[in-house]
Write a protein that binds this DNA or RNA. Structure first.
Lengths: 190, 190
DNA sequence: CATTATAGTGAACGATCGTTCACCTGTCAA
DNA sequence: TTGACAGGTGAACGATCGTTCACTATAATG
């Protein structure tokens, strides 16, 4: 049983059960008859940095989580491994949603932010209770209308600007309520 | 100890340790002196659908995972809970990356796909070993140049089209190698 | 051939696991 | 005042946990 296929099997187990297998379960997973075989294999995985250990000796995932390789574009040539490893080990959940208790998702309808690269059908992650800065994309209700727009502030004048030259900026006549600022955008093609 | 604050503490533990606490650890977490108190509290959380149980009696997360509310835009009015719950319980990892073993990440440079809503600095998730269909966005090497473009096929003529009217379509003179098709896009603002 | 290393078996240990049971409070309604 | 009940304590159980040790089988090396 080589390390790579073992990693793959453990990863599959972890994705399915949301936890790591015990040594006993690894035996079923790998076809071992003895727990000690799993124990030694796990030691190798720890050595390889794929698994880790708790303060109290329990197995914990380390580089087991979907660590997609991050490639960089070199102008001419094939894609090569990028030096930055920011995304490689972190889950998208942690990467995209900093404060899950203050966030919600919104499926975008309309084309008012299309020049900002936000299309119909995209999902935006919105964080509440945060002071918007000039240029942020915000979810707002302006005079009863509910929209996704740029937050603009010019000489103490606050208004909402669309990311689409077909539309005009919105100046609040009566009421402007902010429901949060957009911290990330997600799009899925297939 | 009410259910909500217990859920919050367990969620915090799970995010930190990538696993659920044992009843003993819950005692430290909740300030209990007896495991049985944790046991009964966990029973309530299971009743509430927040936790679940394994085939073998182990605790597993159910609705504990970061379940961001998905809101929908009603034309006039405040955002309300959307009927679709696709995203609510699924992690972004599972949502965005269908086949992690065949995927990689690419940080986008350049503006050649800006009209497709893909900007400089965005991260695209690319899946390898997949036959591109007309209109797919692909990562390709054309005559030694490495790019992100639309895959076009017209009357058996294959070429690459940019998502930016400033640029022209690229017709392969010698060589066209595909490195995968873009299945999702991720952008982070803050 | 002998030797060393690698991989797996199998038994055993103390610790921790989930679970059950009996008991001890308070609080609130009858 | 009484009884029921919910919430927490504490001890106990068998099962499983991680870990250790001694042993076997196979392959590679000299």
């Amino acid at each position: 049983m080589d390390i790579e296929s073992a990693t793959q099997k453990i990863r599959r187990f972890f994705r399915k059960n949301k936890r790591l297998p015990s040594y006993q379960e690894m035996c079923r997973l790998f076809g071992f008859a003895s727990k000690h075989a799993s124990f030694k294999l796990a030691a190798k995985l720890i050595e390889a940095g794929i698994l880790g250990k708790d303060d109290k000796g329990r197995l914990i995932p380390d580089r087991l989580l979907p660590s997609l390789p991050v490639l960089g574009i070199i102008r001419a040539g094939s894609p090569t491994a990028a030096d930055e490893q920011i995304l490689s080990s972190v889950s998208f959940d942690d990467y995209l949603v900093a404060k899950p208790e203050k966030s919600y998702l919104l499926r975008v309808s309309g084309d008012s932010m299309i020049e900002a690269g936000i299309q119909e059908g995209d999902v935006v992650i919105v964080e509440k209770d945060r002071e918007p800065k000039e240029g942020d994309i915000v979810v707002a209700s302006i005079d009863g209308e509910f929209t996704l727009k740029y937050f603009r502030k010019r000489d103490n004048l606050v208004f909402l600007a669309p990311g689409n030259s077909k539309y005009s900026p919105l100046f609040p006549a009566e009421n402007l309520t902010l429901f949060g600022i957009v911290i990330s955008v997600v799009r899925k093609y297939h």
